[in-house]
Amino acid sequence: MDFRKIDNLSVDCVVLKLEDNALNVLLRKRTLNLYNENLPVIDDWVLPGHYVLKSNNLGETANRVFKELTGENHFNRNQFRTYGNAARIKSEKDVLWVRSRGAKIRTITVAYYLIVASNKELLNMDDSLKWFKLKSLPQLGFDHLQIINDAYDDVKTKIITDPLIFDFVPIKFTLNELQVAYETILDVELDNRNFRKKVSSKSYIVPLDEKQKGVSKKPSRLYMFSKDVYNQVVETDFIIHK
């Protein structure tokens, strides 16, 4: 494998998760202090990412990021946009950071997002990584705020017609978990009775002979999403809230 990087081509990854009834994004701490009064101190946050190696393609690079975080290969990654504006790296801090990495100022970034189920913990969650609510993000480097907002817009568009919503909930989920996921991501309030009626009409949402465990209140029935059934009806059916 050729471990030399292509120093003007990178991949940035937006990792999303529902937690505490809020949509969260994973960020990595970016720090640099050269102890030079003429140079700024860098202390902010950025998206996880890598420069593309000469022996890797874009998808392999994104997979490398996701595998470092989750320990798994993620073939359900979503590539949603490329960023190549000549002025996208222009602040003093961003220029200093790129130069400290031996890369070029003019960098093209291909962005992906990955959805982590609400009950899943990341494999390598060290002090440099932290979940932030999408509505209360810290100071970000580069154009990463724009990348995050674009990823969110893409998710909101796709969950209307694609089964993306099921990536946000556990493999076995309750109808309440599914409804809360929709309401949180779309920032809407759904009628509970109407929602459950629509769910019951979807052949790809399969009721199980199982109920929640370890809850203080009355346990709710569990359901699963069947991708095989969904693929058979995809041309004639719609995702739940339509």
Rank of each mutant, 00 (worst) to 15 (best):
A87H: 14
Y113Q: 05
V14Q: 04
V206I: 15
W131A: 01
S118C: 03
D209H: 13
F142V: 08
V95Q: 07
L122R: 02
Q212E: 15
R106H: 11
Q139A: 13
S216D: 10
T157E: 14
N231S: 10
L23K: 12
W131I: 06
K242P: 13
V46C: 15
E37R: 11
P40W: 14
L175M: 10
V25Y: 09
K133R: 15
Y204K: 01
S10V: 06
R106M: 11
N78D: 01
R81P: 06
K54E: 14
P48E: 10
V233T: 11
V188S: 10
I148M: 02
D7S: 08
Q79T: 01
F166M: 05
A151Y: 00
R221W: 01
V215C: 08
W131P: 10
P163T: 03
R221A: 05
F225H: 04
S220Q: 15
L129R: 12
L23I: 13
S55Y: 12
L222H: 11
L145F: 06
L27V: 07
Y182N: 06
R193K: 15
V155I: 15
N57W: 08
R64P: 02
H241S: 05
Y112I: 02
S201R: 14
K67R: 15
W97P: 01
P219H: 10
R101F: 08
V95P: 03
L175F: 04
K135P: 00
M1Y: 12
A22L: 12
L23A: 08
V110K: 14
S136A: 09
N21D: 10
S100I: 00
F132L: 06
I108V: 07
V180S: 12
P163N: 07
T161I: 08
K133P: 07
